[in-house]
Design a protein around this nucleic acid. Structure first.
Lengths: 208, 208
DNA sequence: CCCACAATCCCACGATCATGGGATATGCCT
DNA sequence: AGGCATATCCCATGATCGTGGGATTGTGGG
């Protein structure tokens, strides 16, 4: 069965060339191509696409809003953003809107086709520079981390393992040390963070 | 100038074949290859690599800890994780540790070389399935909270209270219910989330 | 009018955790 | 050489948690 696609792109020449591109290939079924997404609710419900190719900078209602709508109406439908922007803000908004892929428009057509198949198969195709931006969005702890910094690397490793839901024994296995050593590390952690349970330690170190 | 690389991989055959792979190419300079990262501080300072290829599952001190160390000692050095794990937890930890790339070991050698160049040039090479995991880590507004949504409002309140480090008794006081009720709610939470401890529940509901 | 579900409370038993003692070894700094 | 931090391991005891029952109330949908 071909991958059913909807395309939203206000630039007519680009839209038509993409249309042409998909029309020649049996593994794709371009169900529709539109210059704006003012009626996207109807179009989504009518065509039930597997993948939506979405430009960000659209007239009237932009691609970010549209992505939100798609994910609300059809959570299983994958949204692949296609845009000239690669600034942090746009990437962040797109990700929060539920997009699972993000390609720059300079991406060669063959890569776009590949990306559609990728995203349909559960992947998240991204231009390398976009992927980097996504990573940079993560609150990578540097400043606010006063609490975590009090712990030695080993203690941090123990706490991370606990935070992922492991028991003492599982931590011991994962870190290749005895359970007694795990217990000792945890005692130190409790002293340093002034807490008295695993969940309290996780809370102080990671959640706030 | 070639890209200077350090390699950490405990599987000797794989390590050696990667060594061989790099040694034949002038654009790469594999400065060292090690079976563990117990002395990584020294090695980083001595070789000042551009890129560190890091296995996650190493004996003694794992790749996550090592990535933290690398980024602390040499923030400009890029860390490319190479691993068999693609679970949310490992990916999250790697990202938080400062890794900028994440490849599954099944990745063909040619793609690994490409990824090293990508990461050196400011990209963030990731296996598609990994990229998807990274996206899923984001707190998406309309709720990727599939897990949290399974819980009733009261159960969510209990779990939030636990996540802030409270004991059963403290939860009971906070929510003005008896400790037995708290225990019952927690039992339901465990059933619904398929977990067996407070920290595991917190992990499933909030951290992933 | 039931029935399912949410929310509340109770008990008992075994498993796990928290805490207080220890101990040894290694490396680093002075 | 001595002090300090880190990391490893051991044991005992009491507190807390995890799990398996059971129970009552109110609410909303079929």
């Amino acid at each position: 069965m071909p991958i059913r696609i909807l395309l939203y792109e206000d630039n007519a020449p680009l839209r038509e060339s993409l249309q042409l591109l998909f029309s020649g290939l049996p593994q794709f079924d371009l169900a529709g191509a539109f210059g704006d997404c003012m009626n996207i609710e109807k179009e989504i419900q009518q065509h039930t696409p597997d993948v939506v190719l979405m430009d960000i900078d659209l007239p009237g209602r932009n691609g970010i809003e549209a992505a939100h709508i798609v994910k609300r109406l059809a959570p299983g439908t994958e949204v692949l953003m296609l845009t000239v922007f690669d600034d942090n803000d746009k990437v962040f908004q797109a990700v929060c809107a539920g997009a699972s892929g993000y390609l720059l428009k300079k991406t060669p057509p063959s890569k776009i086709l590949e990306a559609v198949e990728d995203i349909y198969n559960g992947g998240a195709p991204m231009s390398p520079s976009i992927a980097r931006k996504v990573l940079e969005l993560f609150p990578r702890a540097p400043a606010v981390n006063t609490e975590l910094d009090k712990l030695t690397p080993r203690e941090q490793a123990v706490l991370r393992s606990l935070a992922s839901g492991n028991s003492y024994k599982m931590v011991a296995d994962e870190l290749q040390i005895s359970i007694e050593t795990v217990r000792t590390h945890i005692k130190r952690i409790y002293e340093k963070l002034h807490v008295h349970s695993v969940s309290e330690a996780i809370s102080k170190a990671f959640l706030k």
